[in-house]
Design a binder for these strands. Sequence first.
DNA 1: ATTCTACAGTAACAAGGGTTACACAGACTC
DNA 2: GAGTCTGTGTAACCCTTGTTACTGTAGAAT
Lengths: 210, 210
Amino acid sequence: MLQQLEEAYGFIFEDELLSEINQVGNLQFVGAGETIIEIGDYVKMMPLLLEGAIKIMREDKDGDELLLYFLERGDTCAMTLSCCLGQTKSEIRAVAERDTKIIMIPIEKMEEWTSKYKSWRNFVFESYHTRLSEMLDTIDTIAFMNMDQRLMKYLQDKAKVNQNETIAVTHQQIAYDLHTSRVVISRLLKKLELDGKIKLQRNSIEVTEL
Amino acid sequence: MLQQLEEAYGFIFEDELLSEINQVGNLQFVGAGETIIEIGDYVKMMPLLLEGAIKIMREDKDGDELLLYFLERGDTCAMTLSCCLGQTKSEIRAVAERDTKIIMIPIEKMEEWTSKYKSWRNFVFESYHTRLSEMLDTIDTIAFMNMDQRLMKYLQDKAKVNQNETIAVTHQQIAYDLHTSRVVISRLLKKLELDGKIKLQRNSIEVTEL
DNA sequence: ATTCTACAGTAACAAGGGTTACACAGACTC
DNA sequence: GAGTCTGTGTAACCCTTGTTACTGTAGAAT
């Protein structure tokens, strides 16, 4: 575990902090598709992402869903962070996008480390900053882009976090993530295929224009 | 200044910190409509809002605008905060919604206070938390609501931050804030008036249903 | 009073995207 | 091989929102 911890965070954290994380952190493996945090959960651990990818979803009262962004190696969930500190319920859902390895840190340690380690403070601030930027990007996407552009961006992002230009996904799943209907997605995907940007197969899509 | 500082932040900050702010902070008055931060600005001061209200806008490359949220007394701009710490350019525009009184804190102090005062750390974390929630709310609004609902919410929010159920605004200005066209707004406003939720006058709107 | 300008009302039309309905194809079960 | 289930393709239709165009009017400027 220490080796992966160093790979992901070694440049940022002091050795002393790394070894503390190594001691108190709880290593967990999450299979692709498994839910890590559900909306309304009280969050008592903060995740550090060692390997894999996590997708962060929003859902309103009517059950309408929307993909917010992906987390990758070296990220943490600033939402969760925020929940830990404020002792509030999670406002988002976190689902493993692929097989994922995380270290869970108990919240008690967070307070402690915040006073003790400058590198930890910087990491937390940095995480908030990244997350705010990511949210701005999400807002830009839904406010300023049409569905065909959003779809193309979605496919490119998804290919990137899965490190594979062929994505295993159904049209219905895309429709959920982008908060639209399956028919709309099928229609637009066909158009993108005719434009030569992707190739469609059953249960998967190859993104040729990355 | 100290009195207003205490009113706005007295319950959160230690006396020692309050008096430090009082010493190094730079009190500023901004008239309604004036721009406080422009997109692309390098931000070297962090604002604490004593009185008034600030609206935070996003703009894309094509000049399309969108209102993100309002700041009120006791708030700070977490975006700015984020920019200060990361030394990056502002990704948003801040405009005084009404006559506003703020204290500007030089960024050097921020680092210092973060190690020195627990209350300051908590305030910063709390601000980030509030801002993330606010952004989620914005996303919900544009992702899940129709234009008529968004418009009604806009009018209610605006009435609230201006502490007046009569809002001085033109249809065109609303169209900019909601990133749509003037005709659409006029159409929907008329419908809201027929539903008895608002009363329309030239250059102003009275919100009867708050 | 006349002119100018910004603001508001409204009609007619276009486009994007959501809905319903149905056909068909691959994959799996029995 | 027949039946079933899930995923995909597509047409037809509708609603919301965006666009263009024109009218009227309040208020300021002259």
